[in-house]
Amino acid sequence: MGKPLTENPLRVGIVGCGKIVGQYLENFRKLDDVRLAAVADIDMERARTVADEYGQGVRALSVDELLAAPDVDLVLNLTIPAAHAEIALAAIAAGKAVYGEKPLAATTAEARKVLDAAKEAGVVVGCAPDTVLGTGVQTARKAIDDGLIGAPVAATATMVTPGHERWHPNPDFYYVPGGGPLLDMGPYYVTALVTLLGPVVSVIGAASHTRSERVIGSGPRTGETIPVTTDTHVTGVLVHESGALSTLVMSFDAVATHSANIEVHGSLGTLAVPDPNHFDGDTRLFRLGGSEWETLPVSAGYIDSGRGYGIADLARTPQGEEPRASGTLAYHVLDVMESLLDSAHSGKAVATTSRAERPVAVPLADIARAGVTGS
């Protein structure tokens, strides 16, 4: 089995102190497996603010200083997608493990360089989303593994919103290549589908680019127009290695939907899976011959979890084994999404070039208090 990555709490340095960092900091405070050592940002004042608010001896450093710091075991990469590969490669070159926000990189070519460099250096790469480790998706997975819906046949995954520019003060990166609804929100849904149904072998896609400009709706740039240079509505079919077919709809152009975030259909029933953008939520089952939906009891996953639990899971992973929120899984998810866009633009089915094993299931556990409550 080997030993965990570190015998002590995993010492983490954060690069990128933007909007998402607060969610990680909140959970780091309750995870015994993780200790925040330092933070860095291109805006030093922002880094100092985060360090001061967190306290506990956390230092505000430049990026170069953080990468060189001897008390940082893992770099948490919270930069914008276009910088994911650059920061990951620099961290790996410094001998650090890496855990990145999604996607792993802006392209599979960049992501491949990250994984190859990590393999050569002998360091671990993990990547968000870790939402699939929570009780929502994991309870749904256990229902599938326990045969409650029989043989899985198909799934649907739907995410529609009129656009992030309505609430995000700096939404530019959502509307350039490497952004868009598929690369922004798709990782949650595709990672959940792979967790539930296994890896994807081919895809068929279609996409549209309906507007060339968007108007920022909040913050100091309210009213400013930004260009749109990427697809803003993407749909397609994922063919899983198991034979199951998943239909995916990701849109920054639609207003609302009554559709479940994810449904999984089997020969004996259908599961309504909670929003994969969250860690918990009700999993509901409609059985063949039944008359109504039933809510399944929580039976698997990390209890009351949040962003950062993937890092705690990585810290507990024996040396030589893949963490559940692994770089390999994130690469496969990126490959699926990139292949879907390639298919949309070519009008042809595209085979994926990567494979990732379905991650090991998460038993019901509360790692914030280091107490396993079930199996």
Rank of each mutant, 00 (worst) to 15 (best):
R211N: 12
R211A: 13
S212H: 10
E213I: 06
R214G: 02
V215P: 01
V215H: 01
V215N: 01
I216L: 08
I216W: 04
G217K: 09
G217W: 07
G217E: 09
G217I: 08
S218N: 14
G219M: 08
P220G: 10
R221P: 04
R221W: 13
T222L: 14
T225G: 04
T225P: 02
I226M: 03
P227C: 02
P227F: 02
V228P: 00
T229S: 15
D231F: 14
D231A: 13
T232V: 15
T232P: 09
T232W: 10
T232I: 14
V234D: 03
V234G: 05
G236R: 04
G236W: 05
G236E: 04
G236C: 07
G236F: 06
H240S: 01
H240Q: 02
E241L: 13
E241T: 08
S242P: 07
S242K: 06
G243P: 09
G243Q: 10
A244D: 05
A244F: 06
A244M: 07
L245A: 13
L245T: 12
L245H: 14
L245N: 11
S246H: 01
T247M: 14
T247F: 14
T247P: 06
V249G: 03
V249D: 06
S251P: 01
S251C: 04
F252M: 08
F252A: 08
F252P: 00
D253F: 04
A254S: 14
A254V: 10
A254G: 08
V255E: 15
V255F: 11
V255G: 06
V255I: 14
A256F: 13
T257C: 06
T257I: 06
H258R: 08
H258D: 11
S259T: 11
A260Y: 13
A260C: 09
N261M: 08
N261Y: 10
I262R: 02
I262N: 04
E263S: 12
H265P: 03
L268H: 13
L268D: 15
G269S: 06
G269Q: 05
G269H: 03
L271Q: 00
L271G: 00
L271A: 02
L271D: 00
A272C: 11
P274Q: 08
P274R: 06
P274H: 08
D275C: 11
D275W: 07
D275H: 13
P276Y: 04
